[in-house]
């Protein structure tokens, strides 16, 4: 494989921002004397994904990871920042509309297998939708054959094309969802919590399937999840989000063995211990603050054991470190204790 091609990022996200106006209606604001309220769901996120790798975004609910996913596939338009896909900025809706060829090369897999398939369509029609819409194949016979191939590819029977979504279990529906995503022959898949609604044994099937497909079709994944163990299993690189910002990203091994940001450490600490080593989870004080009214400075400072005055006032910049980058004053100042060596790692 040529080095230049492999190292070329397929997606570059730069300073991505998305604000939502959640103010009360104008009349209520005037009568009740309230200000506009803006949620900064995504507030300056930058990362890039190389061709063929899996980049994961983790974080707790409300951290903005799903919003990033939806910004990238164009379900939302960004407030600011650029989304370069194969070198072309397709952030603004007008630009995206000008490049249907680029849009066609990305697809999305959703979280809820019960809501992501139109209940009134046959599975065959659901999978054929991208083929028909983009006129990849004209002949109905060819389409039926292709749908059959796709169904076999995701481990279902070609005969399932005639069934309706409600005849399938959650895991099987997620397979249909993947088949639909593959029907448009994409190179880049955005997977928004694809297994969090599934049982563990089914989750294993889906994760295995996704890995097989990646190897076979050379797919690139952006994987959104709150489950660190799943992320550890699937990713090459991992980014950690907190209140709309990317606080740390690194190669998977580095991030899990030597987490720098206190929030990343907290997340790792909170993972239940299945190996029964007797390690107790370290419960972290406090909860995620409301994104409507985020703390000043580093938004993690109220929960951070290492916070000082600077953390309360100054937003830390993202600084490159070996194998990744981190946004933390304590790391920059070198006042962070080393991460304890874990028995498991």
């Amino acid at each position: 494989m040529q080095k230049s091609d492999a190292d070329q990022p397929i997606l570059q996200v730069e300073g991505l921002r998305r604000y939502f106006d959640v103010s009360a209606p104008w009349l209520n604001r005037v009568l009740e004397g309230k200000d506009r309220s803006i949620v900064r769901a995504v507030d300056g996120v930058s990362f890039e994904i190389k061709r063929g790798e899996t980049f994961s975004l983790v974080g707790e609910s409300g951290c903005g990871k799903s919003t990033v996913a939806r910004l990238i596939v164009g379900l939302y338009g960004p407030t600011a920042g650029s989304i370069r896909f194969e070198g072309t900025d397709i952030g603004p809706s007008a630009e995206r509309a000008r490049h249907p060829d680029l849009q066609a090369r990305m697809q999305m897999i959703f979280q809820d297998p019960y809501a992501s398939l139109n209940p009134r369509w046959r599975v065959g029609d659901i999978i054929a939708e991208p083929i028909r819409f983009r006129k990849l194949l004209k002949d109905e016979k060819q389409i039926a054959q292709r749908v059959g191939e796709l169904l076999s590819q995701v481990g279902l029977s070609p005969l399932d094309a005639r069934k309706y979504p409600h005849e399938f279990s959650g895991g099987q529906r997620q397979r249909v969802s993947i088949a639909r995503a593959l029907a448009g022959e994409p190179e880049f898949l955005v997977c928004d919590e694809p297994t969090s609604a599934l049982d563990v044994s089914v989750q294993a099937q889906i994760l295995n399937l996704m890995k097989d497909l990646q190897r076979r079709l050379g797919l690139t994944y952006l994987f959104i999840s709150h489950n660190l163990a799943v992320v550890y299993h699937v990713s090459d690189k991992v980014g950690v989000m907190y209140l709309g910002r990317l606080v740390e990203w690194a190669d998977k091994k580095i991030l899990f063995q030597r987490p720098l940001h206190p929030y990343t450490r907290m997340l790792l600490d909170a993972i239940p211990d299945l190996d029964m080593t007797g390690r107790q989870r370290t419960p972290v004080a406090g909860e995620v603050p409301s994104p409507l009214n985020p703390p000043s400075g580093c938004s993690f400072h109220p929960r951070c054991p290492f916070a000082n005055e600077r953390c309360k006032s100054e937003i830390p910049a993202v600084r490159a470190v070996e194998g990744g980058a981190v946004a933390c004053h304590a790391v920059e100042e070198g006042r962070l204790p080393p991460w304890k060596i874990q028995a498991a790692a």
């Binding site: 294993a204 099937q205 890995k211 190996d275 498991a344 790692a345």
Partner: peptide, 16 residues
């Protein structure tokens, strides 16, 4: 076997 776990470096999970 189906539960992914940290520090367990396997290409594929055990699958039922």
């Amino acid at each position: 076997g189906a539960i992914p776990s940290m520090g367990m470096d396997v290409e594929r999970l055990t699958q039922i």
